[in-house]
Simulated assay, not measured.
Amino acid sequence: MGNSLQEQLLKAGLVSEHRLKETRTDKRKTVKQPGGRAAAADDPARRAAAEAQAEKARKDRELNLRQQEEAQQRARENDIRQLIHAHRVVREGGDLAYNFTDGTTLKRLYVNRDQHARLVDGRLALVRQDTFYELVPTQIALRLRERDASLVLVHNQSTAKPAADDPYAEFQVPDDLMW
């Protein structure tokens, strides 16, 4: 009973000893090769594992890209905060109300007379920093507008000159007009 089929065929004389050795050698080579019977049996599992690994790599790349974009966004926001904080004009002792709009909301900021005059003629600009409002020089407002235009709330630029046929050209609006 312990005889294998190969040994039984050899005893019966149906195969030669040389052919039996070749068959054993071929079988051993087939099992050891990556494309052999052992690999063929695992082929769907290996394919599924390779697909799962490729999917994981794709998700990891997307996650890394998203994290890099978020880090860049935070760095831009910090640069803007530092720029505003480094160049803001101190508003201590402001007794004059300056009214402006933030979106659809009417806001009021107290400034002194010099700051009010500089805001009106465009030498200062009013910007939003998080939930606060700050006064900054015009050059800084232009740099902020390049990075995020929604931060600059008030930047008066007097580039328009009155037209020659304007009937109200001789009547100037006073700078101290309050609304």
Rank of each mutant, 00 (worst) to 15 (best):
Q73C: 02
L9W: 00
L153R: 15
Q139H: 04
R47H: 14
D26T: 12
V120R: 06
G36H: 11
L63P: 03
N78M: 07
L126C: 09
L144E: 08
L177F: 14
W179G: 02
A125H: 09
D114Y: 14
E134V: 03
N112W: 11
G36W: 12
S16I: 06
G93T: 00
E7P: 01
L83F: 05
R58M: 12
T159C: 09
D42S: 09
D42R: 15
H87N: 15
D176N: 10
K161L: 15
H18D: 13
E146C: 08
A125F: 07
T101M: 14
G122A: 04
V31L: 12
Q172N: 11
G13L: 01
H85G: 02
E17K: 05
R28H: 08
T25C: 07
L20I: 03
A41C: 06
E55A: 01
A41R: 12
R19S: 10
R76F: 10
T101Y: 15
D26S: 14
R91C: 08
D102Q: 13
R147D: 13
L65D: 04
T138E: 10
E17V: 07
V15K: 00
A71E: 05
D175K: 09
R91H: 05
V173I: 10
E55L: 00
A41K: 12
V152W: 10
A117M: 09
G122E: 08
E7C: 00
G94L: 02
V15N: 01
P34M: 01
Q53H: 07
Q73G: 05
A141W: 08
Q72E: 06
Q67P: 00
D130I: 11
Y133V: 04
V31N: 02
V127F: 05
Y133P: 13
T159N: 12
L20Q: 08
E7W: 00
L144P: 06
R76K: 11
V154D: 11
K11F: 00
L63H: 02
P167V: 08
L65T: 11
M1D: 07
A164W: 14
E22N: 13
I84N: 02
R113C: 01
N78V: 01
N99H: 11
Q115G: 10
A141L: 10
A71N: 02
L142D: 13
